[in-house]
Write a protein that binds this DNA or RNA. Sequence first.
DNA 1: TTGGTAATCTTACGGCATAAAGAATTGCCG
DNA 2: CGGCAATTCTTTATGCCGTAAGATTACCAA
Lengths: 257, 257
Amino acid sequence: MTVYAGQGDAHRSLALLWGAPAEPRTGRSGPKPGLSVDAIVSAGIAVADAEGMAALSMRAVGERLGRTAMALYTYVPGKAELLDLMHDRALAELPGELPLLEGWRAAVEAWAGQLYACYLRHPWALGISQARPVLGPAELATMESLLTALRPAELAPERLRGAVAALWQFVRGTAATTADARGAAAATGVADEDWWNARSARLAELAPDFPKRFPLLTALQSATGAAPEESSRDGFRTGLAVLLDGIAAGVSVQGGP
Amino acid sequence: MTVYAGQGDAHRSLALLWGAPAEPRTGRSGPKPGLSVDAIVSAGIAVADAEGMAALSMRAVGERLGRTAMALYTYVPGKAELLDLMHDRALAELPGELPLLEGWRAAVEAWAGQLYACYLRHPWALGISQARPVLGPAELATMESLLTALRPAELAPERLRGAVAALWQFVRGTAATTADARGAAAATGVADEDWWNARSARLAELAPDFPKRFPLLTALQSATGAAPEESSRDGFRTGLAVLLDGIAAGVSVQGGP
DNA sequence: TTGGTAATCTTACGGCATAAAGAATTGCCG
DNA sequence: CGGCAATTCTTTATGCCGTAAGATTACCAA
């Protein structure tokens, strides 16, 4: 019955994510709580949306609620747990309704588009490591939603898992790229294109042998009229198409409708 | 000829990435430099590899070199630029040799495997936002390498860009998941599986209606014997297969060899 | 009213990135 | 050779950060 370090915190965090068991005002008590986990999470999201992840400090969240930073620790074990809660709350605003009648392809496209848009609305959420599985209700609901969309494809379990992983990572990755490009443009007051042009010119200056060192990159750049990194918006659409085709290949192998 | 905020830094950063133009000991002089950008980057990587990204401070890097934190600022504009340099250096250790004669599929598999392994060797590199295009030589070489692998597939330019974006994001995403899972396991001293079991039990306790709320997730979990999040290693293989099939679909549409 | 408990505030600690200014070292030019 | 200018590096300081500890306050039950 060993209790491992950090496990207690993990349990506490899970409990917060799934809503406390609502213990009915245990025993006697002291002063009524003036805050709530929900209010703190909302304030955190407000700060992060407005000022960015870098400005999200416990002090800032507390201030927005008219409290000190330390007041938050009554409700939330620490900043990491607050971030987890904020992430799950952001995902919770996904509509969850997909055009299931138009086939799995349209449904998955809609799912990806919704998740992508949600991350662009809350770019800070991309800075929260989704690696350690947080397992919040909204995150699981989003996964369930994707599985629902993919159901008509009747993929084999292994294949289904691969598709889910690839789609999830792809959406997060492309959203991160777009979000940071936007952020950089906004921070410097330079339009995406101008910024890229300046950078590109400087690069040609520093590496005059660029076309010889990177011939395929150069060719792709001139063929599509933009650098691969810059065109993240298109990257989302075309990349998603590749993924969907890959899923479709699994369908045909597996058997028709 | 407006000079935008931050643009100077961007130029400086690019110049560092591509190796200073080696100005031949400009003008008169002062004391000989006791450090170098290369040495600082190496020290940074050593610290990050050994102690993790959280322990990577300017003080720590300076200390490893027998200097104070401020000494680094003679060579590097700031921490952000140092991180960019470290990231590019990490990518530089990719072998760059791919089994091109065995077909594009094998070549891309090798490319992805190499990048995945590199990120697992240097998990901290995943914490560096690759969004703002850093455009270091190693990063570009890695892209060129992927384009070389994909060349026999003869994809249309748009399609090619999509494939590159999807592959890149996928490798980074799955590597991040695996790396963080490993980190969590190491930090708590709990094996992946045990940790998951405990977590899963706790979740069942907190959300007794789990199988009803997430039927497909439950089914997938029992079908594959593990939670979707936990199986990132398999996720890499199977997800990559989906991506490759998607690329292959583009090939057949586009025309044969 | 009183005692106990829970919410909150104050204070403090050790850390961070980095700005500013001074000390030390080196080489060129007179 | 002497001194000046350039350069490296250290010292010191500023203002952040997360959060530990303890004092304070507000509330309820007895």
